[in-house]
Amino acid sequence: MSEILLKIDGKEVKAKEGMTVLEAARSAGISIPTLCHHEKLEPYGACRLCIVEVESRGWTRIVVSCVYPVEKNIIVRTRSEKIDRIRKMILELQLAHAPDSFILQDLAKEYGADRNRFEKEPSFCIHCGLCVRYCAEVKKKNAVGFVDRGIRKEICFIPEIASKECWNCKECFPLCPTEALQAAYVLVEALISPTFLQTRGREIGSG
């Protein structure tokens, strides 16, 4: 593995080939905020909060650092006026879904995001996919997954698997950046009405 030299926030950083910008920054002690990142899981690039400015050959681009591989001689800026502005917007949009999330509120304070900027639609899910991916990649149980798409996308437990596996695991609850209770609520919902496919299908069919 060859070593790659790059500059992050003015600091020379050595990284191995194949590493992401986020990993390189963290190894150098530079923190980049993330919501959907987890060491044990494959990078997903869902929350977009880890965006950074990458300058190579005089061109500056905004990239998502958790899925962007390191390159030779790039200059990375993890904080700039532009980056802060975009992160603030992302946070405000996410706060519309999860206004009471402590992690989001802390970040909002740092970036000056206003939690009341957008009309609230508290679905308590920001689609980071941590629970879904943790269940699939680490636990290999696939008890929880996404259903539907766009604004109606949400997480959903498979009742048959959930009733066997979930009560003794619940490891996805603390992963949730909005509130551990969200997964708990959806899990209970799945177990109370295990006819998901039918009821859900009807909803989609009529919607």
Partner: peptide
């Protein structure tokens, strides 16, 4: 294939 995946695709 896990059921979650099929469910995801079938609802997508």
């Amino acid at each position: 294939v896990p059921m979650t995946r099929i469910q995801h695709i079938a609802t997508f």
